[in-house]
């Protein structure tokens, strides 16, 4: 599937999960909000890919929400060919049982004054497996690139596994870039504090998990796209 976004157009695209391979080209000044919201109707566990080419001053925003369980695998490749292109990638995963959720991201900064911002959070339980690999490449000519990449993960069982690999490769000498990842447990002091106030442990865990992913959900402009997946109102 090939999608062209014309000059200065703003398109909202809702992934219907039918295509295994998608290609997109954003012309100068174009903006795309791409919603990749997984629910029980569109479950597709086969590996899929999305390649995006961005021209001058274009903006690509990607919102991936997979919080109701179910495996998925997506490779997302973004190439900034024109100066001033920007991309924002938001990913939020809550996986349990024997789910396997994989996100492979590749951002190729080839032009000047471009930016990328990546925030992915996973909450894993049971025997779930999470994979995040994010490579940001800043080529020699891509001066004044601003890039941040963060992947924070919460493991709530002994048997779940998180594989995370943020990568940053820089060949330009005037850029501002950061990358990092964390894997941790729920804050036990916070859990006890909540229990001491009378919040049952299971509810306290649920509230902390929700608080953890809310940072990603708050970055997604149209909350109605995922609100039905949440057990409590936004």
């Amino acid at each position: 599937m090939q999608i062209e976004i014309r000059k200065n157009d703003h398109k909202i695209i809702v992934d219907d999960f039918s295509a295994s391979e998608m290609r997109m080209c954003l012309e100068e000044g174009a903006t795309v909000d791409f919603y990749n919201i997984i629910d029980s109707d569109n479950m597709n566990t086969a590996p899929r890919s999305l390649s995006v080419v961005q021209h001058k001053q274009s903006t690509f925003r990607f919102h991936s929400v997979n919080i109701k369980g179910g495996s998925s695998s997506l490779s997302l490749s973004i190439r900034h060919e024109g100066d001033g292109a920007a991309c924002v990638l938001n990913g939020c995963v809550v996986a349990g049982e024997r789910d396997r959720v994989e996100h492979n991201i590749h951002i190729d900064h080839q032009a000047q004054y471009c930016s990328s911002s990546v925030l992915y959070k996973y909450v894993l339980s049971d025997e779930a497996v999470g994979v995040f690999s994010g490579r940001v490449l800043v080529r020699k000519g891509a001066q004044h690139t601003i890039s941040d990449e963060t992947n924070n993960n919460l493991c709530t069982s002994r048997a779940c596994r998180m594989f995370t690999k943020p990568e940053l490769e820089i060949y330009a000498d005037d850029v501002k870039c950061s990358h990092g990842s964390t894997v941790g447990w729920l804050n036990e002091q916070a859990l006890f504090y909540m229990q001491q106030r009378g919040i049952p442990l299971a509810d306290a865990k649920r509230m902390l998990q929700r608080a953890f992913i809310s940072e990603v959900l708050n970055r997604i402009p149209d909350k109605s796209r995922y609100a039905h997946l949440l057990s409590e109102p936004v």
């Binding site: 916070a190 504090y193 909540m194 229990q195 001491q196 106030r197 509230m207 929700r210 953890f212």
Partner: peptide
């Protein structure tokens, strides 16, 4: 611990814990 609280036991913590993302109202 939560049932002790329900029975009427309360501790004002020496170091109250910060819980980012959980509002006082919801808590």
């Amino acid at each position: 611990p939560e049932d002790r609280a329900h029975e009427g036991l309360f501790l004002s913590f020496q170091y109250p814990v910060e819980i980012p993302g959980v509002s006082m109202t919801n808590f």
